[in-house]
Simulated scan of single mutants.
Amino acid sequence: TNTTRFHIQAKMTMKTNFFGTRNVYLELLPLIKPQGRVVNVSSMASLLGLEACSLELQKKFRSETITEDELVGLMNKFVEDTKDGMHIQKGWVNSRYTVTKIGVTVLSRIHARKLNEQRRGDKILLNACCPGWVRTDMAGPRASKSPEEGAETPVYLALLPPDAEGPHGQFVMEKKVEQW
């Protein structure tokens, strides 16, 4: 089988979903005011896909001490592992999109932890969320949610009151924290 197309798509999907999210956050971080809210759009696919990864990868992605550099290394390793079509044998789920969204969810956990360490007094809350299956160009007309319904969880997280203690560093679906 020709793995070139899968590899190129993996590289582009990673560049957009994971590295794009990371780059925007790193640029905007200095501008985030106290009691600010950061909402990264991930996907329920990250939660489901995590379960399909090898136990070794699951352990790394669930680690409370994984660093951003380690995560970036894992995301780059996935893209490399797709070059020869060995990604499944190396423990990855067989979905470019899913792996990038696992990355976004873990990145959100890491950045929330960093905010606790570096800007604790600012009470910034940062989370990843799934908007659900939304009728967009990507999901198509048969998706179960309207764009307005899909916006509910991200908007809920963005508008958490200034005195809110959480959620923070969580993955949220349907306005509920999901166990990562």
Rank of each mutant, 00 (worst) to 15 (best):
Val155Tyr: 08
Phe18Tyr: 14
Gln35Ala: 10
Leu115Val: 05
Lys77Arg: 15
Thr3Asp: 10
Leu126Asn: 09
Asn2Cys: 09
Thr82Ala: 07
Lys145Ala: 04
Leu26His: 14
Glu68Leu: 08
Val24Arg: 08
Glu165Gly: 09
Gly132Met: 04
Lys83Gln: 15
Gln35Gly: 00
Ala158Leu: 12
Asn94Glu: 11
Ile124Gln: 05
Trp133Gln: 01
Glu70Leu: 13
Ser63Gly: 01
Lys59Glu: 10
Ile88His: 02
Leu159Lys: 10
Gly91Glu: 12
Leu115Ile: 11
Phe19Met: 08
Leu50Asn: 01
Leu28Cys: 09
Leu48Cys: 00
Thr16Lys: 01
Leu126Met: 06
Asn2Asp: 15
Gly103Ser: 01
Thr13Asp: 08
Phe18Pro: 04
Val39Ile: 09
Met86Gln: 15
Ala151His: 01
Leu125Arg: 15
Ala128Tyr: 04
Glu174Cys: 09
Val134Tyr: 05
Arg120Cys: 06
Val172Thr: 05
Gln179Tyr: 10
Thr153Phe: 05
Leu50Val: 06
Pro30His: 03
Leu74Asp: 03
Gly85Ala: 08
Pro34Ala: 12
Glu152Arg: 12
Cys129Phe: 03
His111Cys: 03
Gly140Leu: 09
Glu27Thr: 04
Thr98Arg: 11
Thr82Cys: 08
Lys60Asn: 07
Gln179Ala: 07
Arg37Pro: 15
Leu50Thr: 09
Ala143His: 09
Thr82Pro: 08
Gly85His: 04
Arg22Gly: 03
Lys101Ile: 11
Arg113His: 00
Cys53Val: 02
Gly91Gln: 11
Phe78Glu: 08
Met86Ile: 10
Leu157Tyr: 10
Gly166Met: 13
Pro162Gly: 13
Ile102Gly: 07
Cys129Lys: 07
Phe171Met: 06
Asn127Gln: 02
Gly140Met: 10
Asn116Tyr: 08
Glu70Ile: 05
Thr67Trp: 07
Lys90Asn: 15
Tyr25Thr: 12
Phe18Arg: 06
Ala112Pro: 06
Leu115Trp: 00
Val39Glu: 08
Lys15Gln: 11
Val72Pro: 01
Met138Cys: 09
Leu115Lys: 00
Pro141His: 09
Glu149Ser: 01
Gly166Thr: 14
Leu55Val: 11
Phe78Val: 12
Gln58Lys: 10
Gly49Cys: 06
Val38Leu: 05
Met173Lys: 14
His87Ser: 13
Ala52His: 13
Val38Cys: 02
Glu178Leu: 13
Thr67Leu: 04
Ile8Leu: 14
Asn127Ile: 07
Glu174Arg: 14
Val39Thr: 15
Ser54Asn: 03
Arg62Met: 09
Asn127Tyr: 03
Glu68Cys: 04
Ser108Met: 10
Cys53Asn: 12
Asn94Lys: 12
Arg22Asn: 03
Asn94Gln: 15
